[in-house]
């Protein structure tokens, strides 16, 4: 499952990424293995997506979100 598969309001834990080159920019924003991310909403046209991570909002494109692999267990 990837971040792009979640619905607004869902929370999940990041496991890693499918791309060979790690998305360093996202990592610097604190999206690392073990980090809890929450999908807040999709933009009116369905893309990009507003995610909440470490207490702030970040907007990323779906194609990039689809590279972020999630743990199968949901956080409490």
């Amino acid at each position: 499952m990837t971040l792009a598969d979640l619905k607004p309001g869902d929370k999940a834990i990041v496991k890693g990424w499918s791309s060979s080159v790690p998305p360093l920019r996202l990592m610097e924003h604190g999206i690392l293995p073990g980090t809890v991310v929450e999908i807040v909403r999709f933009a009116p046209l369905g893309d990009p997506v507003d995610i909440k991570v470490r207490g702030f909002h970040l907007s990323i494109r779906k194609e990039d979100a689809a590279q972020i692999i999630l743990e199968t267990e949901f956080p409490a």
């Binding site: 998305p23 996202l26 909002h57 970040l58 907007s59 990323i60």
Partner: peptide, 8 residues
Amino acid sequence: SFFAMELP
């Protein structure tokens, strides 16, 4: 162009 934009 990797798109990551903060929504302050």
